[in-house]
């Protein structure tokens, strides 16, 4: 079964933007989604990426290591999920139900090239 990577882009919420009860409802919605995907055998994994900028490496003989990448916007990739689906259509259909979209984020879907 082909695998697809869902990269979850969003703008980090400002501090103190959510009340505890609101945080609960957000966490709950993601949990329900990943459980539904898991139960259907569609979810192969996922993880949080750290909020710091990361590094960009370039060069051949002398490799430069710099902080980045810095995009024009404040958007970051907060984390990723790995889906199992037969094609892009199915993967996109599964991603559509992800609460990330409801909360204003965007999802970048990439097929993992297994060959």
């Amino acid at each position: 079964m082909p695998q697809f990577m869902m990269l979850l882009h969003s703008e980090p919420a400002p501090e103190g933007a959510y009340t505890p009860e609101e945080i609960q409802s957000v966490v709950q919605k993601y949990q329900e989604w990943s459980e539904k995907m898991g139960a259907a055998g569609k979810l192969a994994g996922g993880n949080k990426l750290a909020n710091n900028p990361g590094k960009v490496l370039r060069g051949t003989d002398t490799v430069s290591v710099v902080d980045g990448p810095f995009a024009e916007t404040k958007e970051v990739i907060g984390g990723y999920f790995v889906l199992e689906a037969k094609d892009y259509d199915e993967a996109a259909e599964l991603s559509k139900s992800c609460p990330h979209l409801t909360f204003g984020g965007t999802i970048e879907l990439r097929q993992i090239d297994g060959m």
């Binding site: 945080i23 993601y30 949990q31």
Partner: peptide
């Protein structure tokens, strides 16, 4: 406490509760 809540908000959706 707010920091802890926000950390949960960032991590639990990916890692699970």
């Amino acid at each position: 406490v707010q920091e802890a809540m926000e950390k949960a908000l960032r991590h639990w959706p990916f890692r699970g509760i």
